[in-house]
Design a protein around this nucleic acid. Sequence first.
RNA 1: GCCCUGGUGGCGGAAUCGGUAGACGCGUCGGACUUAAAAUCCGGUUGGAGUUAAAUCCAGUGCCAGUUCAAGUCUGGCCCAGGGCACCA
Length: 836
Amino acid sequence: MKDAYFPQEIEKKWQKIWEEKDVFKTPDNSDKPKYYALSMFPYPSGKLHMGHVRNYTITDVIARFKKMNGYNVLHPMGWDSFGLPAENAAMKHGANPETWTDENIAYMTKQLKMLGLSYDWDREVTTCKPDYYKWTQWLFLQLYKKGLAYKKEAAVNWCEECGTVLANEQVIDGKCWRCDHVVEKKYLSQWFLKITDYAEVLLEDLDKLTGWGDNVKTMQANWIGKSQGAILKFKVVENGLEVPVYTTRPDTVHGITYLVVAPEYKDIEKLTTPENKEAVEAYRANARKMTEIERLSNDRVKTGVPLGTHCINPFTGEKFPLWTADYALVEYGTGAVMAVPAHDTRDFDFAKKYNLPIKVVIIPDTTKDDNGLPYCPTAFLPSLTEAYTEPGVLVNSNEFDGMNNEDAKKAITQKAVDGGFGEFKTQYRLRDWLVSRQRYWGAPIPVVYCDKCGIQPVPEDQLPVLLPKDVDFSVVGKSPITTSKTFINTTCPCCGGPARRETDTMDTFVCSSWYYLRYSDAKNDKMPFSKDKVNKWLPVDQYVGGIEHAILHLLYSRFFTKALRDLGLLDFDEPFKNLLTQGMVLKDGSKMSKSKGNTVDPDEIFENYGADTARLFILSDSPPARDFDWSDAGVEGCYKFLNRVWRLISSNADDISLAYTLPSVLKKENDDMVRLVHIAIKGITNDISNDFQFNTVISKYRELVNAIYDWRGKKTQLDEEDKAVLSFAIVSLIKLMSPVAVHLTEEVWHELGGEGSIHDVDWPEWDENLAKASSITLVVQVNGKVKDKIEADEALSEDELKALALSSEKIKELTEGKTIVKTIVVPKKLVNIVVK
RNA sequence: GCCCUGGUGGCGGAAUCGGUAGACGCGUCGGACUUAAAAUCCGGUUGGAGUUAAAUCCAGUGCCAGUUCAAGUCUGGCCCAGGGCACCA
C-alpha cells in the first residue's frame, strides 16, 4: 500500500470499475424491502454549483447507508431540461437550444460521475427528449379529458423581459421569479390546470406529511390560504341589482356603513349613476395604469370614489352608499367588500379619510370599563382611534346583542341563509395554475384549433407533437415557434379540415411534476409508467432539495399525484413521504452567486483535493437543513483528515487482516479500544437514522481515528490480540466511512485484500453491552453544582453510589457542619447532595 | 400585522430522557522535528478572579420571571435575526 494518499488516481480508477461492473444498478425485483432516495433533478445550466454538490452528496450518502442496511435502493438522476435559459443562449449565440442543452448535460454528467454518486444511469430521465415529453403531453390530455385542463380568457401575469405569461407562484413581490422584471397584468386566453379543485385535499393532506418540516407545510398552507366566512347579498336601491360580498366577519354586519367594489368589478358600470360616471371612469383608468407593485404597496394611502348608488342592509334596513376603491381586489372573493370601519383597519382608514360614518357593533367582553362603569357603545366610540378587531360581544345588533362574536358569525350567517340573502362559504387564495408559455423550448401543448370544431386534443396515437426545427430564434415580441413553416398548419382530427396547432408550450413545472414517477419505469414506451412499478417504488422515501421549491414544485407535484390517482394511473396520494430541505451554501456570509463573485468551482476542488474531500467537507460543518458556510480552510482540514486516515492504515497495513478473530477476553486497553469502536458504530448509525446528522457523524469518524492513533501510539509492538483489535477497528472504520469517502474506502478495502466492493458489504453492527465504557464517571453535586467526579464500577447499587459520594474528601469538606436535607441518586451517573 | 425557523466561545457547531455546557473541527497561541520551510506530531484556548506555577473560586447557553434537588433543555412573558404570507375583506 502506498504511503501517500493520491485521490485523483484512485478516484478515476474506481469510477471506471464501478461503471464497468454495474455496481449501482437497481433491480426492479428483489427480496429486499424497497427504498427510494431522490434528489431534486437539476436544470442543465452548464456546470454544477456547490448547492448541487451538497444536495446530491446528502442523498447519495442516504442511499448508500440504506443499501448497506439491506434495502433495494432506487437512486436515480435526470434533467429538468426544458426552459428559458436554453432559448436565451440560443438567441445569443445563434445555436440551437437542444445543442446547448445536450452539451450541458454531457458536461454535468461527467461532473456527477466525478463526485462518485451511486446513480443507476439506466433510469436517466431527460424532460426535453421526445420519449419523455410524449408522456407529458399524454398526461396533459388525460387532465384535459377530465376537465382539469382548460383554456380561458383571464387577467394574467405577463413578463415583458421573458416574453411570456407566468403562474401566480412564479411572481415574487410583483416581479418575475427568473429575471426580476416587473410583471404586468394582461388579458389573454391561456391554458390552466385546475389545481383549485384540489385546494381542500392539498391542505388537509399536509397533516399526513409527518416527514416534512413545518416550515414547508406552513408555506403551502398559507399559499392555499383557506378562510371560512359567508357570502352576503345586498340589494341595490336604485336598480334592484344584487351585490354579493365575501366576508369572514359576518358578526359585524350591523356595523356596515358603506360597500366597496374593485375598480375592475364586472357590473361596476351598472352600479354607477350618470352623475358619478366621469369620476368613476377616471379612477378606473388610473387603476389600470398602476403596476401590481404600486397597487399592493402597503403604506399607500387608500383612495376611492363614490358610485352614487346605495344598498340596503337586510339586517338593519339601513341604507348605505357604494364606492369603488382599489383596496378591493377583483380576483379574490366576489370582488366586493362590505365595509365595517369600526372593526376593520382598512375600512377604518378609508372611512376617516372620506368622512364616512363609523358604527361600533362589538365591544370588549367585559361588563365594566376602566372607571368601573358599564360599557356602552357610545362611550366606547370616542375612544376609538383605530379599528377594534379583537374578539368581544355584540352591541347595536338587534337580537344578537350580548352574543359572543364567534357565535354570532354562525348565527348571523344562518339568518342570512334562512332569509335567502346569504350562504356559508369557504374561500381559498389558491388560483388555478397557468401552464401555457409563449416560448419555444418546452413541451408543445397537444391541441389543435379548427374553425368548425373548436379546440381539439391531438389523438394519442399522434403523440408526441414534436417541436419544429425550422424556427427563427431572433424574432422579438413573439414565440419563435410561430415562425415555423411546418408546425402550425395541420388538419383537424375531428373533421379532417384545415386547422392550426397550439403554439404555446407548457410551463417546465409541468414536466417536473411527474418525473419522479417516470424513474420507476423510465424506458416504458407504451405508458408514462406501469401502474405496478410506480406503486412498487413510490412514494419517494426520502426527497432532498432546496427550500426554494417549498411552494412551486412541491405543491404542483402533490397536485399531479392526486390528479393521476383520480385518473386511476396510480394508487397513492402523496408523492414524497419524507422531505429534507437542505440549506444554502454560503461563502463569506452570503449565497454563492456569479454576480457576487463568491462562487467556488467544484471542478477545482475535485482536481486539488478529490471528490472524497469535497463530499466529506460539504457534510461536515452544518446539519443538512441549515445554511452551510464554505471555507477554504475547512476543505483543507477535511483533506488533512483523509490523509490522516490513509496514513493510519498504510503505516499499519501489514498488521491488519480482514479475517481477524477477536478473543473474548481482552487486555484492559484493548477492551477499551473495542468498546470505543462499538460506541462509534452505535453513535454513527443513530446520527444518520435520526435526521441525517452528518456533521456529528463526521465528528465521530474523527474521534474514532484519534482514538485508534492514541491506542496505537502506546504500543511499540503488536501481539496477535493487538492485531485483531487493530483490524477490527480499521475494518469498522472504513465500513462506517464508506458512504462518505467512497473512493478512499474502496481502495483501502482492496489493498487489505477485500473482495468485490466495499459498497456491497453489510453495515457494521454493535453490541449494546460493549457500546459503553467499562466503568462510569460518577458526578457528585452539592446543591446541583458539580463538585467532584469519581471513577466507579457501573454495577454499584444506589446506596453504594451514595456512600461512595459521601466518602469523597471534597464532599466531606463541603458538607461539614451542614445538614444533608436530601440525596438524589441517578443510577450510573450522578449523586446530588442537598445541604442546608 | 399573521405564520414558521432559529439565538450556545473568535467562528461552524455538539449536548437521546431535564443530570459533567462547549464534543468534533476551523482559527489562534505555545512547543517538538527541520539548516529552513512545508508536512507531521504534542499541548493550551468561554469570561473573570487567583497563583511564580498550580490548586481553587465566581459568572456563563438572547432578556425577565417560574417549576425543579438539578434548566441550553420544561412553562409563561418579552427582545433580536432569517424566511414565508399579506389592502385576501
